[in-house]
């Protein structure tokens, strides 16, 4: 069974003068362990689609099933808990809590989930080492480069072992070296932990790394290519 099933998903913003069909009837599903990129021109609806999959926005119509459960029916406070236990998020920026160290940031979600302290410590150190920040665990976000901050964000998203990770343009603010590093880390963790990664991007190098590329335009899927391994 697919981890995520998106059925006839539509989002219409009607507060504007002319209603915007940001997502216009998308059907798509993701299996466990996928490493998929969503691409498309600016304004094509990538963020809107990811936000609905992540339970951050309510669809106008259609449904998002996560492990068979329709999350569009959940109340907003139930959705917060759902996100906490099932989804890892990586945003373009402002991912981290500025007053916490790298280690504390990674622990944050596990803390909210009430993990056992020793288990959490082990997991945090392990994951920070695999994103190459084993020596920076006590640094605050403002002491880290943009690329390092994004790696901490990926570590945090992964640490609590969610069902899948959504990353909206995770490399948009990074130079090419950091972009490469981040992608390599994401790829490695995707394999090691068998966690589904779905990310949106403008960046061709990111697209090249993806094993599946979904192109959308005007809120519709125009192509969905699974690369052969």
């Amino acid at each position: 069974m697919s981890v995520i099933q998106v059925k006839n998903l539509t989002k219409i913003y009607s507060e504007t003068e002319v209603p915007v069909h940001a997502v216009n009837g998308i059907d798509i599903s993701f299996d466990k362990g996928e490493f998929a990129a969503i691409v498309g021109p600016s304004g094509s609806g990538k963020t809107t689609l990811l936000n609905m999959i992540g339970g951050l926005e309510h669809p106008t119509s259609g449904s998002v099933l996560v492990n068979g459960k329709d999350i569009s029916e959940l109340s907003s406070s139930k959705l917060i808990d759902f996100r906490l236990y099932n989804i890892g998020f990586v945003f373009q920026a402002y991912n981290l809590i500025p007053v916490l160290t790298a280690k504390e940031n990674v622990e944050f979600i596990m803390q909210l989930q009430n993990w056992d302290k020793t288990k959490m410590d082990k997991r945090t150190i392990g994951i920070l080492e695999s994103v190459g920040l084993g020596d920076r665990i006590n640094s605050k976000p403002n002491q880290l480069s943009g690329g390092q901050q994004q790696r901490v964000a990926v570590a945090r998203a992964l640490a609590s072992k969610p069902q899948f990770i959504l990353a909206d343009e995770p490399t948009a603010n990074l130079d090419s070296k950091s972009t490469n590093q981040l992608l390599e880390i994401m790829e490695k963790l995707n394999k090691e932990e068998n966690i589904t990664f779905i990310f949106s991007t403008h960046d061709q190098r990111v697209v090249d790394k993806a094993r599946r590329v979904i192109t959308i335009d005007d809120g519709k899927v125009v192509s969905d290519i699974v690369k052969k391994v």
């Binding site: 992540g54 951050l56 406070s77 917060i80 808990d81 996100r83 906490l84 236990y85 989804i87 890892g88 998020f89 945003f91 402002y94 991912n95 809590i97 500025p98 944050f108 979600i109 909210l112 945090r156 998203a157």
Partner: peptide
Amino acid sequence: TKELGMLMAIGMNKKR
């Protein structure tokens, strides 16, 4: 605002 939005997005509930 952004930080609080991020916290809610990643799963920090209203009570917290």
